[in-house]
Amino acid sequence: MSDSLAISGDSGTRGRIAAARSPSPWLIAVALTAIAVLIALGIWQVERRAWKLALIDRVEQRVHAKAIPLPAASFWPAISAAGEEYRHVAMRGRFLHDRETLVKAVTEEGGGYWVLTPLLRDDGTTVLVNRGFVPPERRDASTRQDGNPDGEVAVTGLLRITEPKGGFLRTNEPAHERWYSRDVAAIAAARGLHDVAPFFIDADAAANARNAPVGGLTVIRFPNNHLIYALTWFALAFMLAGKLLVTFGGGLFRRPRFARAARAAPGTGSDAGTIVKPT
Rank of each mutant, 00 (worst) to 15 (best):
T117H: 04
P174V: 08
N172R: 03
F199M: 07
A105T: 11
N211S: 03
L252I: 15
R139F: 14
L244V: 05
A259S: 03
P213L: 10
L240H: 03
A29T: 00
A19D: 08
R254M: 06
L236T: 05
L70D: 12
G9R: 13
T247Q: 13
V184C: 02
A203N: 06
R170Y: 03
S80F: 09
T156N: 13
A105L: 12
A197R: 01
A272P: 03
W51T: 08
I56P: 00
T218F: 11
P135G: 12
D140C: 13
L159P: 02
A81M: 06
R99H: 08
A29H: 00
R58Y: 12
E109G: 08
I79K: 11
S74G: 10
A175H: 06
A54S: 09
G112R: 14
A154G: 14
I187N: 04
W179H: 05
R99N: 08
A235G: 12
A241Q: 02
T274R: 02
R182M: 03
H226N: 15
E137D: 13
F200H: 01
T33G: 11
I187F: 05
E100F: 04
T107G: 05
A65Y: 02
R263M: 09
L128W: 03
A6R: 13
R49F: 09
A73Q: 08
I7Y: 15
I187R: 06
L96Q: 13
L38F: 12
R94A: 02
S4F: 06
S11G: 08
A31I: 12
T162G: 03
L159R: 05
Q61F: 14
P164V: 01
P136A: 13
W26P: 00
R260F: 00
G9V: 09
A82G: 08
E60M: 07
A212F: 01
E163C: 00
Q61T: 15
I43K: 11
I17P: 00
M239R: 07
E84N: 11
F238M: 09
L55P: 02
D10T: 10
A197D: 00
R99Q: 13
E137W: 04
G192P: 06
L5T: 12
G251F: 07
D202I: 00
A209I: 03
A203E: 13
L169Y: 02
D150E: 14
T279D: 04
A206V: 05
F258P: 00
A264D: 08
L120Y: 10
L240G: 02
G250L: 12
G9M: 09
G157Y: 09
G267R: 05
G157T: 08
R121V: 03
R138E: 01
R255S: 07
D122S: 07
D146T: 13
V37G: 05
R210H: 09
A185E: 03
A186D: 01
L193G: 01
G151H: 13
D202V: 00
T218Q: 14
A259C: 00
D146I: 11
T247F: 15
L53S: 10
T117D: 03
A237V: 11
L38R: 10
V219R: 15
V46Y: 02
K243E: 04
P266R: 13
D98G: 07
A230G: 08
R160C: 05
S22Y: 01
L41E: 04
R16M: 05
I43M: 15
G124N: 09
